[in-house]
Design a protein around this nucleic acid. Sequence first.
DNA 1: AAGACGAAAGTGGTTGA
DNA 2: TCAACAACTTTCGTCTT
Length: 272
Amino acid sequence: MLKDKFYDLGPEWRAFDSDQRDKRGRTGAPMTFTIHDKGLSTIIDWRNKDVHGRDISPTNRAQIYRLRKWQRRIRVSDAAERNLAFAMAELDRISSHLSLPRSIREQAAITYRRAVEENLIRGRSIESVTAACLYGACRIRGVPRTLDEVAEHARVDKKEIGRSYRFITKELNLKINPTNPIDYMPRFASELGLSTGVQKRAVEILEAAIKLGLTSGRGPMGVAAAALYISSIEKGERRTQREVSEVAKVTEVTVRNRYKELQEKLGLNVDV
DNA sequence: AAGACGAAAGTGGTTGA
DNA sequence: TCAACAACTTTCGTCTT
């Protein structure tokens, strides 16, 4: 019954690439929901007096009671709806900034609705919960974005999103696997303009590394970056450590450490 | 001149008493 | 709640291409 009432609150333009998006993005949320009824609501007050201050007859009184009851109901469902609409708008806004596919956004919406149903929002900001749902949705769908990336476009800081995320996943029993470095591969490779051959090789390296347990306890992005770095050299499409570290959002030092490790333990000789 | 290297000190988050 | 800890970062001087 609630869902009939949602409007498309997304941006009114479509962006075809991120440059465009950056230029055209105007402001935060597409619309404010602070005034849900546009000031048109009528309030039935609690006194049993009419406009002239006279007592209302008992017959009319029964009717007034019924009206009051509805007013109460409408008010609470309106508030809930308003919050949901706001959350959906926020979800839309962040995911469009992150160029996330619709399916992920929907996954996030599902999670969010569940969170609402289970009363998990109380005490947490809607913004932090939506961001947390989105972050989780990315991981569930195997298209990881870092917490930093999500936080960058959310209106709350990383710490709070993380807290909400942990809470939500625990309370809803969401089974989310630890991030797999392989999931980052397509994105990193394409951001670096590397061929699918390089990407495939990097995945092979990662698979071998996972078998040897070289990935556990390590930041997945660092490992992914290192594998891609090695593979880019092997395939003659070399990228510098700096370039690789940039897209993976880690430092060169980390790329170095990881790749030295991979090289040594996997018996790869990359040099020359 | 740019890239790669590695040592050393600093940071934030997890873990275990 | 606090301290220890590992991974990662920052910074910086040096070596290699």
